[in-house]
Amino acid sequence: MTTTKPHTEVPTPRGPERRPAPLTMRQRMGRWDVKFSPYLYIAPFWIVFAIVGLFPIFYTAVISFQEWDLVRNTGTMVGFDNFAFVLQDREFWLSLRNTFSIFLLSSVPQLVAATFIAAMLDKNIRAKTFWRMGVLLPYVVAPVAVALIFSNMFGDRYGLINSFLNDIGLSSIMWHVDVIPSHVAIATMVNFRWTGYNALILLAAMQAIPRDLYEAAAIDGAGTMRRFFSVTLPQIRPTMIFVIITSTIGGLQIFDEPRMFDTNGQGGSNHQWETIALYLYNKGWVDFDFGRAAAVAWILFLIIIAIGLLNLFITRRFIAGDAGASTKKSKKVTK
């Protein structure tokens, strides 16, 4: 009986392993370019932002905890006393009320008017470039010039609007005395300046909508209003969210219009239209209390962040709800 030995493979001798050739200087520069060039392209923005953005924010935070002396450029640490004084100041709460009132009177009509103007400019009209430039023209005008013109229009005695009201037999409106009329006047200035700018942003979003959607809706029998609410508005929702958030941030920082609404520039004799930004200015450059002015700046900063996060939460939930509804509809159609 013969036994066969198992076949064993004899390992073949391997040659010396080849090491990759060293990279040339040009190849190394190419790799470095791929890795680091994107950071170099965005570096100028971050450098400028750190100098004119982040540094003032943190420096203001340091000043807000001190009783600051501008002449000696030094301060005495007082802790949270500046914040406590501001939160207990009646004038601060009046300015907060005025800010939100003017913000609501300006942002809501502004968004509606901007959407309407953008929808009109999206139609096949003649001289589109002329109308677009005309809509953007108020935004180009200096805010101080707009405030001066409208403050004279809303004059209590010799204003254009009160003169017209007197001619038709109505009594004059005290724009610079009463609270609500002053807010309406300032909100009108804001709407005049920013409506066209937001309209062009919404117009750009409307022009990016595929025209096939409108054609399909028209074939299904949808009218003009139905196409607007069912096709246009859902398609421009991300741009609408952007406009709402930017309008919110700008509305809470309004300064030029209430500052130039009268010759005094203090927000009215009884602080009728004094906003938070104007209250901050008065604390810093009228009362020369820079510690409390810095505290007001940080309180305003926190309010803007809180409202911005609230807007983000609401819009995310809104978009998620629409996405879920659309998926349910698609499942029903497939079934």
Rank of each mutant, 00 (worst) to 15 (best):
T2N: 09
T4G: 07
T4E: 09
T8G: 08
P11G: 10
P11R: 10
P13Y: 12
G15R: 13
A21E: 12
A21M: 08
L23I: 02
T24Q: 05
K35I: 15
L40D: 02
Y41E: 02
Y41D: 05
P44G: 01
F55S: 11
F58A: 15
T60M: 11
Q66A: 00
D69N: 05
V71C: 04
R72H: 13
T74I: 10
V86S: 00
D89S: 14
R90G: 11
L94T: 15
L94Y: 10
R97W: 03
T99D: 00
L104I: 14
S106Q: 07
A113Q: 13
A114Y: 03
T115N: 07
F116G: 05
F116E: 05
I117G: 10
M120W: 13
N124F: 15
L137H: 09
Y139W: 13
V140T: 07
V141Q: 11
A142L: 12
A147Y: 01
A147H: 03
F150A: 11
S151D: 12
R157P: 00
R157V: 06
R157D: 04
Y158D: 12
L165Q: 07
W175Y: 07
V177S: 13
D178S: 11
V184N: 02
A187E: 04
A187Y: 11
M189Q: 04
M189C: 08
F192I: 13
R193M: 07
T195I: 04
G196N: 00
N198F: 08
N198Y: 03
L203T: 04
T224L: 11
R226E: 08
R227I: 00
F228Y: 01
F229N: 04
F229L: 09
T232E: 00
L233K: 09
P234L: 02
P234I: 10
Q235V: 04
I236K: 06
P238V: 04
T239I: 04
I241C: 01
T246M: 05
L252D: 01
Q253S: 11
Q253E: 07
I254W: 06
D256V: 09
D256R: 05
D262M: 06
H271L: 09
W273P: 10
A277E: 01
Y279K: 08
Y279W: 06
Y281G: 00
N282W: 13
F290G: 06
A297K: 09
W298C: 10
W298P: 05
W298H: 13
F301N: 03
F301Q: 05
I303P: 01
I304Q: 03
I304T: 01
A306W: 03
G308C: 12
L312N: 10
A320Q: 14
S326Y: 08
S326H: 09
T327M: 14
K329M: 13
K331T: 12
K331C: 10
K332P: 07
T334P: 07
T334L: 15
